[in-house]
């Protein structure tokens, strides 16, 4: 099947997780390294979707229930595609990976695991993550792996909106009232220790030239846009030290266990069941 796109993506026929599942069923199988890389992408999206979905019915305005729900739903879609693709290496489905892996088998970064905090902290986390993810996906569209490229192409349009949403709120909160300014700055300071991890290269990245995006390359454009947004919002780039994080390994923040316990509980009460 060489030369033929691994995935169908045409206008009006956006790539769905089900399309990837079909490709996998038809024999598409990725290498362990690509699968491991897809897990990182998928787990970040999944864990952040899980975090954001908490806001639905709790947001400051109904419009925000919808907006944050929308962002969560988009991220969940990315996660489903990446996990389905990753799972082809081990004969596992998206649900096998989401519901039946142990905490140490997740590849999410510390940033997305951070609790929501108040709306300011959630927006700070969104700002950082969406700028990073936008830089990442806009390079992943050129990946030599056509499926990763196709998922990125579909997701990039959505992340463009997530980034805009986070920037607009950063401006409003930063340059709104004294209280909102303080809270937004505190939110940024509180997520800042976990920003460094997003940009660390490691052996897996070295083994996937042309396929994976080199995280360190994203740091300069990230810093530039962030500084511009924070400047306009009258906020400061935090002067906070990076924390020792998991480096995409098997170590996670203390928060992940609770998040997974909640996410996996119903599925795990019914082994072998379908839903």
């Amino acid at each position: 099947m060489s030369g033929e796109s691994a995935t169908r993506i045409t206008p009006g026929n956006a790539l769905r997780p089900e399309d990837i599942a079909e490709q996998v069923a038809a024999g598409t199988k990725v290498s362990e390294d690509v699968a491991e890389y897809a897990l990182r992408l998928g787990d970040d999206a999944l864990i952040l979707a899980q975090r954001l979905s908490w806001w639905i019915s709790r947001a400051p305005e109904i419009e925000e229930d919808i907006a944050l729900g929308n962002v969560a739903l988009d991220l969940l879609g990315h996660a489903r595609s990446f996990l389905t693709y990753a799972g082809s290496a081990w004969g596992k489905s998206e649900d096998d990976l989401a519901y039946w892996r142990q905490e140490s088998e997740f590849r999410s970064c510390f940033l997305v695991e951070q609790p929501n905090g108040d709306f300011g902290k959630t927006i700070a986390r969104q700002l950082v993550f969406s700028i990073y993810q936008h830089e990442l996906y806009s390079r992943l569209v050129d990946s030599a792996d056509e499926t990763l490229a196709a998922i990125a192409a579909k997701s990039l349009k959505e992340v463009d909106y997530h980034r805009d949403h986070a920037i607009q709120w950063t401006l409003r909160l930063g340059d709104g009232t004294e209280e909102s300014h303080r809270r937004m700055q505190e939110g940024l300071n509180s997520v800042w220790p976990y920003v460094h991890e997003l940009f660390v290269d490691d052996e897996l990245i070295e083994r996937l030239p042309g396929v994976a995006v080199r995280p360190s390359e994203l740091r300069a454009p990230f810093d530039a846009l962030l500084a511009q947004v924070l400047g306009e919002a009258t906020l400061e780039v935090p002067d906070v030290q990076p924390a020792m994080t998991g480096n995409r390994g098997t170590r996670h923040s203390e928060h992940l266990g609770y998040l997974l316990a909640e996410m996996q509980v119903v599925a795990r009460e019914h082994p072998g069941a379908t839903w």
């Binding site: 899980q50 639905i56 729900g69 929308n70 739903l73 489903r80 998206e94 519901y99 909640e262 599925a267």
Partner: peptide
């Protein structure tokens, strides 16, 4: 946050969003 499959989670999120 507890939906037992990712597809069901997506559908439920979309549904609650519709209600808003």
């Amino acid at each position: 946050t507890r939906a037992p499959s990712l597809k069901r989670k997506a559908i439920l999120m979309a549904k609650v969003q519709d209600e808003a």
